[in-house]
Design a protein around this nucleic acid. Structure first.
Lengths: 237, 237
DNA sequence: CTTCAAATCCAACAAAAGTTCCAGACACAC
DNA sequence: GTGTGTCTGGAACTTTTGTTGGATTTGAAG
C-alpha cells in the first residue's frame, strides 16, 4: 500500500476514446479517497456521491431490507466503476457501497461529470451506453427473481460465463454460502440445501472445500426451466 | 379514428427543450404505424425496434417465462414513450410490447435517434436522464420482488401515488386480478387471496365490483414491513 | 497442538406462494 | 330471454422458501 495508487482512466468505459489531452480535465477534477475495510463508500438514499472508479480493493454494492437481509447487486474488484446512475442524474445513490477490503477510489462529483460530458460529447455517449447496459442487467436480475427458483438462480450463478456480468468478481466456488445467498436474494440455509441437491443430482461436484460445475448442460437446463434434467437411462440402443 | 393521429413531440421527455425548428428533423425521421388490438408492436429479443411514441391506444410491456406466465412491467396509455434502452444502444428489445387496444405510434429507428442525439446535444442529455430514471424504477421493482411479500406488493400497488410510477396507467381498482397478478409477478389466485385478506383486515373495501383503499396508513405499513398493522384496541386511556 | 471463530451440514418445522379445481357472477352477443 | 366467455370467490392441496437450532468441520491464531 505504499505505492501510490493510480488508475488508467482511458480504460474505464466512461472515458474510452479520449486522448491524453482530453483526459487532463478528468484527472484534474477527480479526487482520491481511501476507505478501510468495513467502511461505507456511500449509502443508499444519501445525496449523490458521484462517479466512483475503484483503483484498489473490493466493494460490495447492495440493498438491505429492514430485517437486515442483504441483496448484493455487485461484488467488484478493482479496476471497476460504479454509481453511474447517481453520478449522471445527481439523484440519491441507489445502493449501499461497502468496502470489503481496504479500498482506494477516485471520484467525480455529479457537477464535474456534467461539465465533462458537455465539453466532451464522447463521454456523454459513453455514459449513455453504460446506462443502457446497466438497465439490461437490472432487468435480467428482475426476471431471475420473478421467474427462477433458487436452484435455478444458483445454477445460473455457477454457469457464470458472465451470467451475472461483471457484477460478481468471484467465481461462485470461492464465495461463501452467505455471499451466494445475498447475491441470489435468499438465505444461507436455502443456498446450502440447493447446493446439496445440485450435487446429488450430479450438476456440481465438490473439489476440496468448494463446489465446481460438473454438468454444464444440466446446469443450463436447470437455469432455464427450473427443472432438474432427466437422466437418460439408456442413451443408445 | 378518422381524425389523423398526431403527437406533441415537444412534450415527450426525450425532446423537451427543443424549439419548432429543432423539432423539424425529428418529425421528418419519424414513421407512423397502426397496430390492431392484440398485435405486437415488437418482441423481446428482436433487433431494436427503435424509439416508440404512442399517440393513441394502450400498450402492455411485459416479459414471459417458458410456461407462459407474464410479468407486466408497464401498462401505458397514450401519450407515452417506451423502448428507450434499445433505441439508444441499438441492441435487441428488452421487452415485449403488445397492443391492448388499437394503437397508433410514431417510431424513430436507432440510427435516426443517434443522428438526432449527435446533432442536438439536448436530446442526448434528455436520453441520459430518461435512462437513469428507468434504471431507478427497475431497481425498485427488483427490490420489491426480493424483499416484499405479495400482500406487501399489492398494498404498494394500491397506494399507487406513482408507487409504480407512470408505468401503470390504471388505478388498481380498475385492473382485473389477472392484470394485477402479472404486474406483481404472481398468479391470479394468489392475488385473489391477498385481496380478500386485505379486505378482512380493513385495508381495502369493496366499492361495487372493485376494491378501493380504505386505510392508507395500514397499506403503507404493510408495504414497508410485510406485516399487517396491529389494530390498536385502546387508542387512548 | 490447542483453541476460537467462522463456515458448513443437516433435520424439522413454519410460512408463503403456486396449483388445481369448481361454482357463481357478470357482460355481451345472438 | 339464452348461451358464451371472462372475471371472480373460495377451498384443498403441493411445492418452495424461510426459520430455528444444534452438531460438525475448517482455518487461522496463539
Amino acid at each position: 500500500m505504499l505505492a501510490v495508487q493510480v488508475i488508467n482512466w482511458s480504460q474505464l468505459e466512461l472515458f474510452t476514446g479520449l486522448d491524453a489531452v482530453q483526459l487532463t480535465p478528468v484527472i484534474a477534477s477527480a479526487r482520491r479517497h481511501v476507505y478501510p475495510a468495513g467502511s461505507f463508500l456511500f449509502r443508499e438514499g444519501e445525496a449523490s456521491a458521484g462517479y466512483f472508479a475503484l483503483s484498489d480493493g473490493m466493494v460490495r454494492l447492495y440493498r438491505a431490507n429492514p430485517e437486515g437481509r442483504l441483496h448484493t447487486l455487485s461484488l467488484l474488484r478493482a479496476p471497476a466503476a460504479f454509481n453511474e446512475v447517481a453520478a449522471v442524474d445527481g439523484g440519491p445513490n441507489p445502493l449501499n457501497a461497502l468496502a470489503v477490503t481496504d479500498c482506494v477510489a477516485f471520484t467525480l462529483s455529479h457537477g464535474s461529470l456534467r461539465a465533462l460530458m458537455s465539453s466532451e460529447s464522447v463521454v456523454m455517449g459513453n455514459a449513455l451506453k453504460i446506462l443502457a447496459h446497466i438497465n439490461r442487467d437490472t432487468l435480467e436480475r428482475l426476471e431471475d427473481m420473478t421467474f427462477r427458483t433458487i436452484p435455478g438462480r444458483l445454477a445460473k450463478l455457477f454457469l457464470h460465463q458472465s451470467a451475472y456480468g461483471q457484477h460478481i468478481c468471484e467465481a461462485p466456488s470461492h464465495l461463501s454460502q452467505e455471499d451466494m445467498a445475498s447475491i441470489l436474494g435468499t438465505t444461507r440455509e436455502v443456498v446450502g440445501r440447493a447446493l446439496r441437491s445440485l450435487m446429488t443430482a450430479g450438476l456440481l461436484r465438490k473439489q476440496g472445500r468448494y463446489y465446481a460445475a460438473a454438468d454444464l448442460d444440466g446446469l443450463l437446463t436447470l437455469a432455464e426451466t427450473n427443472e432438474l434434467p432427466q437422466k437418460l437411462t439408456c442413451v443408445k440402443k
